[in-house]
Nucleic acid binder design. Structure first.
Ligand SMILES: [Mn+2]
Ligand SMILES: [Mn+2]
Ligand SMILES: [Mn+2]
Ligand SMILES: [Mn+2]
Lengths: 148, 148
DNA sequence: TTCGAAATGTAGCCGAGGCTACAAATATCC
DNA sequence: GGATATTTGTAGCCTCGGCTACATTTCGAA
């Protein structure tokens, strides 16, 4: 089969490739809140025995009304449940998200520190960066930290 | 002056420190769109001679109506100007933002690649990560790349 | 020069995630 | 047990950044 009949290489026009990168960043942003809540709820249950909306709100630095609305979204998406005045619980899917998010969060902090960022900056920046690190990049982080 | 009369160390309660990290991430997110637009408009003017709303929209993967609305925000915040049917231009402040954003974007991609992330993943992830890298962390990135 | 295509702008809708203010339920303390 | 404080929930508002649909302006080609 001569070259002229082969399908073209899957190299997207650079314009479209750029649009896809922006798309991906937007979609990562859309799940950032869910990841932060799942991670935090899991932490609160582990350390305090329960995750109450008021504590979640204080830790996040938002009003309790905002926290309750976001918790409603977690429930809507099947990540959490809650009984009236009984705190918030994670479903199996929520636990999984929390676990993955916590692991990624830690790896990001560790990598930033290993590169030479001040601890405080690393911890602050990781809170936003974590939501945009793909599995491939995360794997590279892990390899790098092991090598060191 | 005995220790007991010194003001306490500026070590915030960990709860409040966490809230501040989340707050910082939220505020970084609020400027992400401005940074992406500024960088893109600057690139378009450099490579195409002009930055038209339609081209901006296609590059970002959004509708032209969305692009126009975001451009309105850039104008509102003193970062851009535009004449009807004459494309978009950056103010001095806009140029500065574009320059800083582009430099940060490149450094982030370079660092991810240096760590061992696949090029495509590095470029995709950088589009989101860049908005959360503080000056201190950025400086650490630069030092690391120079050392190598 | 005219007319159709392309670009630009406007209007109106949506959901997410902020907020304040108020209402109701529960917990706590005397 | 009853008053008070805390927690939780609801209602209603805002901005941002998505979208579609439609109107208008400019451009380009016949
Ligand atoms: Mn996190
Ligand atoms: Mn986070
Ligand atoms: Mn960028
Ligand atoms: Mn970006």
């Amino acid at each position: 089969m001569p070259d002229k009949y082969r399908s073209p290489p899957p190299t997207l026009p650079p314009e479209q490739a750029q649009a896809e990168r922006f798309e991906k960043a937007r979609s990562a942003q859309a799940t950032a809140v869910l990841e932060d809540y799942a991670e935090l709820i899991s932490d609160l249950i582990a350390t305090e025995g329960e995750a109450r909306p008021t504590d979640i709100a204080r830790r996040l630095g938002v009003s309790h009304a905002t926290a309750i609305k976001s918790i409603a979204r977690l429930k809507r998406e099947g990540l959490a449940t809650s009984k009236l005045y009984r705190g918030v619980f994670l479903t199996e899917a929520g636990e999984n998200l929390a676990r993955r998010s916590r692991a990624r969060h830690r790896l990001v902090v560790d990598l930033l520190v290993a590169i030479g960022a001040p601890r405080a900056a690393a911890e602050a920046d990781a809170e936003g960066i974590e939501h945009h690190v793909s599995d491939e990049t995360l794997a590279a982080f892990a390899r790098y930290l092991n090598r060191k």
